[in-house]
Design a binder for these strands. Sequence first.
DNA 1: ACCGGTTCCAAACAAAGGTTAAGGATGGCG
DNA 2: CGCCATCCTTAACCTTTGTTTGGAACCGGT
Lengths: 244, 244
Amino acid sequence: MERDAVLASLLRRLDAVSKLDPADIAAIRALPIAVRHWEGGRAIVSDGERPSECCLIIEGFCIRSKTTEAGQRQILSIHIPGEIPDLQSLHLRRMDHDLVTLVPSTLGFISHASLRTLTHARPNVADALWRDTLIDAAIFREWIVNVGQRPAPARLVHIALELRTRLLSVRGGAELATFEFPLTQEQIGEALGITPVHANRIIRQLREDRIVDVSRGHVRVLDETRLAELAQFDDRYLHQDPVA
Amino acid sequence: MERDAVLASLLRRLDAVSKLDPADIAAIRALPIAVRHWEGGRAIVSDGERPSECCLIIEGFCIRSKTTEAGQRQILSIHIPGEIPDLQSLHLRRMDHDLVTLVPSTLGFISHASLRTLTHARPNVADALWRDTLIDAAIFREWIVNVGQRPAPARLVHIALELRTRLLSVRGGAELATFEFPLTQEQIGEALGITPVHANRIIRQLREDRIVDVSRGHVRVLDETRLAELAQFDDRYLHQDPVA
DNA sequence: ACCGGTTCCAAACAAAGGTTAAGGATGGCG
DNA sequence: CGCCATCCTTAACCTTTGTTTGGAACCGGT
């Protein structure tokens, strides 16, 4: 996906509620963006740093994660093209977590200075970006529920269905029976708050039960009905529909 | 605590970074606020609703929570006077969780309309409020780590220490050896992602070990050193210090 | 084709936490 | 004063998840 397509998917999301006018859209399109390529598994910004720019994902996948003193890592979110996973750094000087690529990725960097100028000049754009960070927070809330309340198999399929929904809203198109999910079993464990061994157990189980097949960086849905039943996934928290 | 003191603590937090000027502060003080009293254990806004105002806590305690289809409740955050726990509703039309009082509380309601007028007229204020919602999100991130990675006793003391830190930053004053923590053991379980029985087990254990005493709606610290060791609490994620 | 490093798979055992059930303390209220 | 409701407390037993460990499959680089 190249720059224009990504900007389009970003704009589609931002436009959702605040009704950007043509001048707002033009101003966003005019933002200076420095495109850089990144290897997989490499930090974009790390806990403790004070970045001076935000990162738009043009191509690839990223995660945000925190590491405890004891050395355990918790994955907080998974990010796809069209998203700006560290937009919060615009107002929170110091990073409180890491932002890391999962796979080789193309990133677009936008300076805080230019974003601040834009948001101060155009309250509509400020609202739209603000709203985007609020959806981010809504996803964190659901992630807390996931890790706190659901048994491990439900946790996994819930995350998978969330990612599928978000991929669909960017790429468009019909239901995806197969989609990218580029996490190793160890990373799946870190996302779900379980050990890699247990992650393997439940993946194996879900495969044996012919519900989903999670392997080689992909998810393949085998039984949509039982999957929905297990995941209890309700996409309302993604706030994709502006009127809803 | 009455209205002025609460506005003061709100302003202190908002002023942290964006450096509000006197006109900004006057504009915030001029916001029309409708003060109402609320019983304990009563919803202020519920999942699915479309509120038209935000709620400033003047006196009391509130929680935010989500309930799964299976009927399990997860507490997402605990809120204290000076905070606006549903500020996100300004840009996210529909609630994706509940906001509930824990104890009898005094609340100040501010209409979305007046907030929107304010933020559009004064970018500094918009930035300050935006930043406040970003700190909210940072707390969610740490909550994910808490529920996902820490064993139950560490989860409890981590939440307690977070609340103490936030109470201190509002009320001011020296280290608190005892502070309010108005959750029942069932609610503690809902916050930590464990059953009330297990909550009781770990509370008893922490008491026997002379680390903390959690009872009758209060936390009493018995051994500050071992508490810190157990909680691994690092307040950086609260972003209280603007320069840090 | 081989090698070293990941990643995945798997089994046996241990520990944390869930379930069920029931008695006891506490506190508001008639 | 006694009643009821809520909360706390505890125990016995069961399930899920963690731990440790080892081997198999896969993959990029030489």
